[in-house]
Design a protein around this nucleic acid. Structure first.
Length: 797
RNA sequence: GCCCGGGUGGCGGAAUGGUAUACGCGAAGGACUUAAAAUCCUUUGCCAGCAAUGGCUUGCGGGUUCGAGUCCCGCCUCGGGCACCA
């Protein structure tokens, strides 16, 4: 082959154009016998553009997708945009352009940046969550949830960000502050749509066992769901004031075995009983004003204060009432305290200061009795008929006698509405006569109207509420005047099902054609950041399970295999951010050294799921590597050359290693193996065309442009992505000559070489003959010889 | 506090219980060049030694084993997640 300088810019443009023109990566509608659905978490197209950290995961999936295609799989490898949500709206408000226009511009920018890197996406399947043809189906899913009784309105107090002037789900908070603007969040009652994800807690939990996910993410989800098993026990409440009928307050506990140690009861400030007891119609409390004041103060506390475990516990006794411990009939005081949460369990607890740290702290402060009922050996004491029982056994027995078994989950229902413009309208109509009426499916999508002002109104209502011509409509049931729901969906909505849309992106008749769905689902490999461990990944699973129950889709879980991509930090060790001025734009790297080098470098940096700092200087390694491959292909190739044993061993070993490591997401060691193989090749005067071609095939998923170019220069007409992935030959994987260390008492004293699988006798003789080894052996008597065939020999005395 | 990961040269990192430091970066020396860049060759964990070679070394302390970065016990430390969840 004639020598030609390596010009990355020219080569990369050439092949990117060719792939697009030839439709190289167009995916079949229905895959053949072998399919692989390889998916990236789609990006949110921000105004800042991509930095070099974003494509790391995309490079990985692209490498795997390219390899799988060469292995004969039909691969679905698409890309799209998650473009609704607060950031787009805030960006638009700040820059005074319509969010739709801003999003269009951002997408164009992102797409160009991605295309410069040479990804093998099938762009015919590009999707955008803000496209009415897309969100038609997001709304359709909402209607199915509503019809199944899983969507409901609620007036519970919500988190209110005074700066964004909008309601936030708990998931949008960061330590009690607004995730977007950092303002301290207040509580404010607001009408919201909720989704009953808690109905699926058990399925979300048990489904985890079927998934090949990183342990840490499984663990996070378990934590988030927070299952705990215990008992619900009713406590009778009695009043000092005569003539008042006693009541019953149920509590949830995981320690029913400590029932005899209960010395007081605590209600959360929001507990219904507290509300009733302090209202104007009741007069059972002797210190009603004090309790009222406490409840009010608690409601004004920020989420941070309420949930800060380090702060001192506070509470107020409810004077004039007491509870009765069902186990020993003792009268115990009742308190209201904000360390008890209204949304967990029953919003009331039985306090056992001897066996619960929080209760102990509280008891100490208010001088309440501490009664120990379980000893160091976990045996019950001072517990009447249950004395002497092991605590596990006592849990069963006490529950049986005084309460009922109960399972509780930390998981809370999903606040599914935002008082915002830039989101999917919730397809609901409010009619004075018929109440809540879902928009008929044939009227979907409910299109987001064009508006002049999309900034928050400040009243807390969505800006949509001000567009009367849109809000006013007729009731689909009775035909009378009615109003549209003005809340929109959260950003999580569009991303909770997008993987289904890629399968059938243009379908306007149904969510997804079931034949196509059966053929492509589930997603075989899903890659994204660990920050989505609990939100996106749990919401998407929730919707998927429901759609599966409805028979819309065939699989019980959406994502079988999940890999999480480690962050790329800036060179200074901080996160890449405009704020720090440390952002590296992939376009600059592509321009200066090329997309192939960017790809190889990002895969070579370190373990895929680990955080690493960017180093522009270190990119010279991959650059030199690619240039050496280029030179080798032009200078050292000989058509009919007979390769040495070393070369045959190297290439076969490398095929095995690259194949296995790439599939296992160990890209860094796959590339190391290619480098080692190249080092062996370079030691030879010449390498056969066959070995070199195998090498180029192995490298091609990582550095597709340069490999396509070399492949063409080597005289091949069909593109490299259509070529079969090379197979290794086991016969070449063992070398004839082996060299092993000789140890004396576990210390290496020399090495010996011999023909593989020589007898232990022969090796022992060889080893004893070794000068340095002999020196040590002469002074001692060998007691024992450890010989690991073809690995090591160790003389012990 | 609880739950997950990590801790190996100057740096990123590699190692089914079997020669620790592969691969790459950086550094030093040399070749080519008028010179520089690029490229190529050599060296590069630490200590001693001209060398052969010897000693030490995977966060710390113990243990199991012929043999431990790897397994077990107890700590220290960094990163991430969850957190008054009864």
């Amino acid at each position: 082959m004639s020598q030609k300088a390596y010009n990355h810019a020219e080569i990369e443009k050439k092949w990117q154009r060719k792939w697009a023109e030839d439709g190289t990566f167009t995916t079949p509608e229905i895959p053949g016998a072998k399919k692989s659905y390889i998916l990236d978490m789609f990006p949110y197209p921000s105004g800042e553009g991509l930095h070099v950290g974003h494509p790391k995961g995309y490079i990985a999936t692209d490498v795997v997708a390219r390899m799988k295609r060469m292995q004969g799989y039909d691969v679905l490898h698409p890309m799209g945009w998650d473009a609704f949500g607060l950031p787009a709206e805030n960006f638009a408000i700040k820059n005074k352009i319509h969010p739709r226009i801003a999003v269009e511009k951002n997408i164009a920018r992102f797409k160009e940046q991605l295309q410069n890197i040479g990804f093998s996406y099938d762009w015919n399947r590009e999707i955008n969550t803000t496209d009415p043809e897309y969100y038609k189906w997001t709304q359709w899913i909402f209607l199915q949830l509503y019809k199944k009784g899983l969507a409901y309105e609620s007036f519970e107090p919500i988190n209110w960000c005074p700066s964004c002037q909008t309601g936030l789900a708990n998931e949008d908070l960061d330590q009690g502050k607004c995730e977007r603007c950092g303002s301290v969040v207040e509580k404010r009652p607001m009408r919201q749509w909720m989704l009953k994800i808690t109905d699926y807690a058990e399925q979300l939990l048990s489904g985890l066992e079927t998934l090949e996910w990183p342990k840490s993410i499984i663990e996070s989800q378990r934590n988030w769901i927070g299952k705990s098993e215990g008992a619900e026990i009713g406590f009778k409440v009695e009043f000092k004031k005569e003539g008042t009928r006693p009541g019953l307050i149920p509590v949830f506990t995981t320690r029913p075995d400590t029932l005899f140690g209960v010395t007081y009861l605590v209600l959360s400030p929001e507990h219904l009983w507290v509300q009733l007891a302090t209202d104007d119609n009741h007069d059972v409390l002797e210190n009603k004003d004090e309790v009222r004041a406490y409840v009010k103060a608690a409601s004004e506390k920020t989420e941070i204060d309420r949930t800060d475990a380090t702060k001192e516990k506070t509470g107020v006794q409810l004077q004039g009432v007491w509870a009765v411990n069902p186990a020993n009939r003792e009268k115990i005081p009742m308190y209201v305290a904000d360390y008890v949460l209204s949304h967990y369990g029953t919003g009331a607890i039985m306090a056992v200061p001897a066996h619960d740290e929080r209760d102990f702290e509280f008891a100490k402060k208010y001088n309440l009795p501490v009664k120990k009922v379980v000893d160091e050996k976990n045996i019950l004491i001072d517990s009447g008929e249950f004395n002497g029982l092991d605590s596990e056994e006592a849990k069963e027995k006490i529950t049986e006698k005084f309460g009922t078994k109960k399972t509780n989950y930390k998981l809370r229902n999903w606040v599914f509405s935002r008082q915002r413009y830039w989101g999917e309208p919730i397809p609901i109509i409010h009619c004075d006569v018929c109440g809540i009426v879902p928009v008929p499916e044939d009227q979907l999508p409910v299109v987001l109207p064009e508006v002049e002002y999309y900034a928050p109104t400040g009243t807390g209502e969505s800006p949509l509420a001000e567009i009367t011509e849109w809000v006013n409509t007729t009731c689909p049931t009775c035909g009378k005047l009615a109003k549209r729901e003005t809340n929109t969906m959260p950003q999580w909505a569009g991303s909770s099902w997008y993987y289904l849309r890629y399968i059938d992106p243009k379908n306007s008749e149904q969510l997804v054609d079931s034949q196509k769905e059966k053929a492509w689902m589930p997603v075989d490999i899903y890659v994204g950041g660990a920050e989505h461990a609990t939100r996106h990944l749990i919401y998407a699973r929730f919707w998927h399970i429901v759609l599966h129950e409805l028979g819309v889709i065939s699989t019980p879980e959406p994502f079988i295999h999940l890999e999480h991509v480690g962050l790329i930090l800036a060179e200074d060790g901080r996160k890449m951010s405009k704020r720090y001025g440390n952002v590296v734009n992939p376009d600059d790297i592509v321009h200066s050294v090329g997309a192939d080098i960017l790809r190889v470098y990002e895969m070579f940096m370190g373990p895929f799921n680990q955080t690493v700092a960017w180093s522009t200087a270190s990119m010279s390694g991959p650059r030199k590597f690619i240039e050496r491959v280029w030179r080798l292909a032009h200078e050292s190739i000989e058509q009919d050359h007979m390769d040495s044993e070393d070369v045959l061993y190297a290439i076969n070993k490398t095929i095995k290693k690259v194949t296995e490591d790439t599939l296992a997401f160990r890209f860094n060691t796959a590339i190391s193996a290619l480098m080692e193989c190249l080092n062996i090749f370079e030691k030879e005067k010449a390498v056969s065309k066959d070995s070199l071609e195998k090498f180029i095939l192995l490298l091609s998923p990582y550095a597709p442009h340069v490999c396509e170019e070399l492949w063409e220069q080597l005289g091949h007409e069909s593109g490299i992505s259509k070529v079969n992935w090379p197979a290794w030959d086991e016969n070449y994987l063992t070398q004839q000559n082996v060299t092993i260390p000789v140890q004396v008492n576990g210390k290496v004293r020399g090495e010996v070489s011999f023909i593989r699988d020589s007898s232990q006798q022969e090796i022992e003789t060889l080893a004893r003959a070794h000068e340095n080894v002999a020196k040590y052996l002469a002074e001692m008597q060998v007691k024992k010889i450890i010989y690991i065939p073809n690995k090591l020999i160790n003389f012990i005395w």
